[in-house]
Nucleic acid binder design. Structure first.
Lengths: 204, 204
DNA sequence: CATCTTATGACACTCTGTGTCATTATGTAA
DNA sequence: TTACATAATGACACAGAGTGTCATAAGATG
């Protein structure tokens, strides 16, 4: 039994026999070998030795096999947002908070080569690229909350958080397209195009 | 025969009998009445008095019925980018070019109330919101080309165009959620969060 | 061993999106 | 008027995503 399976273990009842991480990795291998659209959910289930319905119990969609494991990144970013405030820094320098959060998110990724493979697969398929808006929604919410707490108007905070997500995603894509080991310089360069509006205001 | 059908008319052969605009409008009505996911392509085809296959000949996907008619907006934005350069303005003020392009795009929309309805439908369905990345791709390319021509590095231009699209989309969504007649103030406010990096450089 | 909990997968279903192909309608030329 | 070319049309069939139901299997607990 893997650690992932152990996590799902309850006090009683049948324990999980499927390791989601292993299945996702296997799916990524199949996608790399035969192509994303040429690999059906049934193919993946068969290769994993499980049923198609069981596969859907762990992954709500085919895209979830690629977009996945972002919870630790969001969690690390959220912690960075929180500690940034706790350090009593100025609200005027919210951009520094965004930079720290982006870097903190990147820092918790265990295997960057796997992430690079996932991002390249995402870049190659519009169906997966589109998914970014949904998949990054939790990060957007955390950034929005941070910006509102920093004193920005709701409207300005929404604009800035939208730009924050779009630029950092673009940074990750640029990093994935190359071979540089460290994504952080890309993230910092991306955030250079952002600024906090002087009036901190929205429309009007 | 409508003007739209006339546009598709060739020198010879059977002329089109289906008006895509009418079909899309009818589809929007059905979505509003029964909900997006409760309305199948077959329902729409039946209501329009055509076959499902014919419906797919005019609209590549169900989402295309909602995301559609953006070509004039892209065209107007592109023209604004071009005339901005022709006026011999400084490359340093590329943000003004982005503002003009965004406003020019909004100016060519014939019926804003229809656009508001479409955007609200998009806001309510993650499936449609996700589509923004693909649907806005042409605008992203035009903005990217403009920024590169303005002297930005390819990397910085990609970051800025990503932020441009994300913020203007967010502006449209905020406008659609309210009742203000003019979307331009939202667009201008959104672009206030952008800046041109001083070194105009990318990573490194 | 009995029982409870949960994973599992078989079955059936709707819907999206695609491909093929015969048919029909209409404009143009002989 | 008669071919003829062109393109719209829709009938049929199909793969695959995603969902719902339900009987069964398997392991943990008492």
């Amino acid at each position: 039994m893997t650690s992932e399976a152990a996590k799902r273990q309850r006090a009683s009842g049948r324990p999980a026999t499927i390791d989601p991480d292993a299945v996702a990795g296997l799916a990524l291998d199949l996608f790399a070998e035969h192509g994303y659209e040429n690999t059906s959910m049934e193919d993946i289930a068969r290769a994993a030795g499980i049923g198609r319905k069981s596969l859907y119990r762990y992954f709500a969609s085919k895209a979830d096999l690629v977009w996945g494991g972002t919870e630790p990144v969001v969690e690390a970013s959220t912690l960075a947002f929180g500690s940034f405030h706790q350090q009593g820094k100025s609200d005027a320098d919210v951009l520094a908070g965004l930079r720290e959060a982006a870097a903190a998110g990147a820092a918790v990724i265990p295997d960057l080569s796997v992430t690079r493979g996932r991002l390249r697969l995402i870049a190659e398929h519009a169906e997966l690229t589109s998914r970014s808006y949904e998949s990054l929604a939790p990060q957007r919410e955390k950034a929005l909350a941070f910006l509102v707490e920093s004193g920005l108007s709701d409207s300005a905070a929404r604009f800035l958080s939208a730009a924050y997500l779009a630029t950092t995603f673009e940074a990750w894509m640029q990093w994935a397209a190359g071979s540089d080991p460290d994504p952080v310089p890309y993230l910092l360069a991306a955030l250079e195009v952002l600024r906090v509006p002087l009036e901190k205001a929205g429309v009007g």
